[in-house]
């Protein structure tokens, strides 16, 4: 097993995490053995396209999965095994230990309560303080997330706010109980670029100020590059490459990561055509036998289809890749 952190005990550690959904008569193997360590105060960008399992991985940390999901492997947060928690344990984990920010604040928030009430609720769920006291804290939180005329906004309803303001409110709710880990699931995807960068900078600032760790799920490499210390690229429900953000983006080892990054950079081939990745994302009806990317991979060899490549260190600092033919050895 790899130790990415070099800093002793990780805050969060996922070991062989797997998530399988019942669907009709069969299954969807959404996450197929994810190992990830997160140091206190560290930000990992979990990068992947639709169906890569990035959001499911994130949700399983909070145990926010539907009943049709079967969770396997180990999730330990701060030394306790999240998979073994009962309802009460989960509640304290969800508020005090881990906060979460979603893509669509309107769906995630109760529209019949004012912004102030939602934050007050979130505070009082984990601390026994008076309403008045909690309201004062709510105001501080709104100021922290840089909402203009915060006092007035306490009494607004979520649907009265613009997209960017709503996202700020949701961040405030997530921060209400001073979590040590913030999970962000594509929080800027629905926003304009001009608003997106404000939210990204806000998250980065808060994360640094409070020494909070963060997992940031996104499909947008540029966004991931803005906020992450480390990147983990997912494909077919597995992490295929992980490493320091700058290093990974500059010189990816996994052919999928390579294809994704050159597509995002708008690279063109010799004939002037934009470079994408031919083929289709993997079918998830069966647990992968070999590398899920093998059918689309230009470098695939016989072994790729037969056995699952493990995430192994490349020799570069903190860098690991799950590939039999990584770039540096190819």
């Amino acid at each position: 097993m790899l130790d990415f952190t070099n800093q002793g005990t990780p805050l969060l550690s996922l070991r062989d995490l797997s998530v399988r959904f019942r669907k009709g008569k069969g299954h969807v193997h959404a996450v197929n053995g994810v190992d990830l360590d997160l140091a206190p105060g560290e930000t990992v960008g979990l990068l992947g396209e639709s169906g890569s399992g990035k959001s499911i991985t994130l949700r399983s940390i909070m145990r926010l999965l539907p009943d049709s999901a079967a969770l396997g492997g180990k999730i330990s947060f701060d030394g306790q095994d999240v998979t073994q928690l009962n309802r009460r344990g989960l509640r304290s984990l969800r508020g005090a230990g881990i906060g979460m920010v979603f893509q669509e604040p309107l769906v995630a928030m109760d529209q019949t309560f004012t912004v102030g009430d939602q934050i007050v609720e979130a505070i009082r769920a984990h601390e026994t303080i008076s309403r008045g006291e909690a309201r004062k804290r709510a105001l501080e939180l709104l100021e922290l997330v840089q909402i203009p005329s915060a006092r007035r906004r306490l009494d607004s309803f979520p649907q009265e706010l613009s997209g960017g303001m709503r996202q700020r409110v949701m961040i405030a709710v997530a921060l209400a109980a001073r979590p040590r880990l913030l999970l962000a699931d594509e929080p800027t995807t629905a926003l304009d670029v001009t608003v997106q960068i404000q939210i990204l900078l806000l998250l980065r600032e808060i994360q640094r100020e409070f020494g909070m760790a963060m997992i940031f799920v996104t499909h947008d490499i540029g966004v991931a590059a803005q906020v992450s210390d480390r990147l983990a690229v997912m494909y077919g429900g597995r992490i295929v490459e992980s490493g320091p953000a700058g290093q990974l983006l500059a010189a990816p080892e996994h052919p999928y990561a390579e294809g994704l990054i050159s597509a995002a950079r708008g690279h063109r081939d010799g004939a002037g055509r934009l470079m994408g990745i031919p083929g289709r994302p993997p079918r998830l009806e069966q647990a992968p036998q070999g590398c899920s990317f093998a059918p689309r991979c230009p470098r695939a060899i016989g072994a790729c289809a037969e056995s699952l490549p493990e995430l192994v260190a490349t020799g570069r600092t903190d860098h690991a890749v799950a590939c039999y033919v990584p770039t540096s050895r190819g």
Binding site: M165, I197, G246
Partner: peptide, 21 residues
């Protein structure tokens, strides 16, 4: 200026615009 660069070294320090459209 608000478009995030793929290069983590070129981080945007200040949002070029404040608030929502």
């Amino acid at each position: 200026a608000a478009v995030p660069s793929l290069d983590p070294a070129k981080q945007i320090a200040e949002p070029p615009l404040k608030g929502d459209p």
